[in-house]
């Protein structure tokens, strides 16, 4: 029987939304135990209670040390390695934090990590995307070794917060390495929905033309109650910040509605929206590849279309 440890990533907004999705993936292993591990410097964090409410969770293990104030891979990785002995599987959501820490853990445990689980076939057999999602590879992990894997959050719905797991908190001894020091983090503040969890997303591409113009995309997003996204070209050009990039090497998302404006539809961009419900494309080039996958396409100049659209929206 599987015994699963899920990394309980905490951030400035509490429990990372990917944790509830990783827990859903863990449930597919029909585990005898499903523990969430929160590594903290301060045990009063709200996210810990949230983790305990996740349906399916057996126990929330809280390990406390000052060095856990920031999610440094070397520090947290060592803690995970120490706890690995009790588990058959160690999972983390495929966030930048999870992806930073888990391979380090896998290497120290001498196992090959499985990146981006999109389906659990059995305790040892998993599907994962390769080639920007243009191929799916089914892999089997070797018997008798712990499975270390990240979970593709766009493939799983969050489990509901209906549980009531035990929280077990205790101080933890790590010797933090002296080779890494956290300096600062600059996070966007704002009222907009989070790109990773939003039901609707409006994205702008290179065609938007400037960071001032990107406000047009943001305004439309606000009208629709949507999060804002961007193509790589728009981010590279400085029209939008890096955390808004959607795609193979940005965020992989699965909103109910995705509106791509002035985005051509390169393979790498499409890799980020394959699981979206309805895709709407607005592009002035009728031949743009985005139209091949869009559920609803509108050929036109975004600078004319968006003002008209805003007028007609209820």
């Amino acid at each position: 029987m599987a015994r699963v440890l899920v990394f309980g990533e905490l951030g400035s907004k509490g429990l990372n939304s990917g944790v509830a999705k990783a827990v859903r993936c863990a449930m597919d292993l029909q585990p005898a135990a499903l523990d969430v591990l929160c590594l903290v410097a301060d045990e009063s964090q709200e996210g810990i209670k949230q983790a305990a409410r996740l349906q399916g969770v057996t126990k929330v293990l809280v390990r406390i040390h000052d060095a856990f104030a920031e999610p440094l891979a070397a520090v947290m990785g060592n803690a995970l390695v120490e706890m690995a002995g009790d588990y058959t599987h160690i999972l983390a959501a495929n966030t930048t934090v999870g992806r930073d820490i888990l391979p380090r853990v896998a290497a120290r445990l001498g196992v090959q990590q499985i990146s981006d689980i999109m389906r659990v076939e059995s305790e040892r057999v998993f599907d994962r995307p390769t080639y920007a999602g243009n191929a799916i590879t089914t892999v089997e992990a070797p018997e008798g070794m712990v499975v270390v894997a990240t979970v593709r959050t766009a493939s799983y719905r969050a489990v509901p917060e209906e549980g009531d797991a035990v929280v077990e908190a205790q101080p933890f001894n790590v010797s933090p390495p002296s080779h890494t020091r956290f300096v600062e983090r600059r996070e966007a503040k704002g009222e907009r929905p989070d790109l990773q969890t939003a039901r609707k997303v409006v994205s702008g591409g290179r065609a938007v033309g400037s960071s001032e113009n990107f406000q047009i995309i943001a305004n439309l997003a606000d009208r629709l109650g949507a999060a804002v996204g961007a193509s790589r070209a728009a981010v590279d050009a400085g029209y939008a910040p890096n955390e808004l990039q959607v795609g193979q090497t940005g965020k992989i998302i699965a909103p109910d509605l995705y509106v791509a404006i002035g985005i051509s539809g390169a393979i790498q961009h499409l890799a980020g929206i394959k699981d979206a419900g309805t895709i709407v494309a607005i592009n002035k080039d009728g031949e743009a590849p985005i139209f091949e996958i869009a559920d609803l396409g509108l050929e036109g100049d975004l600078f004319k279309v968006i003002p008209e659209l805003e007028k007609l929206l209820p």
Binding site: I114, N134, T137, E140, E299, L312
Partner: peptide, 28 residues
Amino acid sequence: LTFLRVIKTSTPPARQGGHKVGSVEELV
């Protein structure tokens, strides 16, 4: 050189493209 056994590689289900609309009204 390898630790995971690759059982198979398959093509993901293709998204069915939809259709184009003729105007902003239709889109709304």
